Amino acid sequence: MTDISITAANVVAGENSSRDTGSAGEAITAGQPVYKAATGKWMLADSNSATAAARKAGGIALNSASLNQPLAVHKAGDITIGGTLTPGVAYYLSDTPGGICPVADIGAGEYVCLLGIAKSASVLAVGIQAPGVAL
């Protein structure tokens, strides 16, 4: 699977961003999809995790954080993702923890979690949908 390469320093929330905050439950880099664990901390989301909650991203990290540090999470709206996108293409949660991949790279056995649609080569319109279905 080919995940998009994200430059953390270039991740910026758009004006229409819906956000949440909390603490990191592990090392997280800006631009990585995350979910809120049972501990209440944000962890890296993963489309083929054995943990059901991890297969549904709750948002995308807006800053990098180490364990127990503050984390801002982009939940919906536009985000400059810090990587190169193809306009009009749907981007999904990857089977690499914290990864984002185009729809063409979703593999068998992965749980589908749509993160958003590319509005341009750098902006992702985030609208997370996770029906709980594996391919």
Rank of each mutant, 00 (worst) to 15 (best):
Q32E: 13
L93I: 02
T2G: 14
T39C: 09
P131D: 03
S47Q: 01
L71K: 09
A72T: 15
V126W: 00
T7W: 03
D46M: 02
E110G: 14
M43I: 07
G127P: 03
P102I: 00
P102Y: 09
V112Y: 05
G107F: 03
G88W: 10
V103Y: 05
S64T: 12
A130F: 04
G40W: 07
G82S: 03
I81H: 12
M43L: 12
A53Q: 14
G99R: 01
A27Y: 06
M43F: 15
I4Y: 06
G40F: 14
P87R: 06
L44M: 08
Q69Y: 09
V112P: 03
Q129A: 15
G98Y: 04
K41A: 11
H74Q: 14
D105I: 12
V103W: 11
C113F: 00
G14V: 05
T96Q: 15
L93R: 05
T7V: 07
K56G: 12
I128T: 08
N68C: 03
W42I: 11
A38P: 04
A130V: 02
T7F: 09
L62P: 01
I6E: 02
D20H: 06
L135F: 14
A13F: 12
S122R: 04
D20G: 13
G98Q: 06
S18F: 13
C113I: 11
T84N: 15
D46V: 11
K56M: 08
S122I: 14
N16D: 15
I28T: 09
G14H: 02
S47A: 14
N10W: 08
A45H: 03
P102A: 08
S47N: 13
T51M: 06
A61H: 10
N10M: 11
L114D: 01
V89Q: 10
A104T: 12
G98P: 04
L93F: 00
D78E: 13
A50I: 13
V12C: 08
A24G: 07
I128G: 09
Y111A: 02
S120D: 05
N16P: 14
G88T: 09
G99I: 01
S5P: 03
G40T: 07
D105A: 08
V34Q: 01
A72P: 04
A65T: 09
P97I: 00
V11K: 01
S94E: 12
T21L: 08
K119H: 02
V126F: 00
V133R: 14
A130I: 05
Q32K: 10
A38Y: 11
L67Q: 13
D20T: 10
G82D: 08
S94P: 13
A24H: 00
A65N: 08
M1W: 05
V112N: 15
D20N: 14
S17M: 12
G83I: 15
Y91M: 07
A121R: 03
D105V: 12
G77Y: 01
Y91A: 00
V73K: 09
Y35W: 14
P70Q: 13
A37P: 03
A130N: 07
T39K: 06
I128A: 06
S49C: 04
D20I: 15
T51K: 11
I106Q: 05
G107D: 12
L115K: 02
S120T: 06
S64W: 07
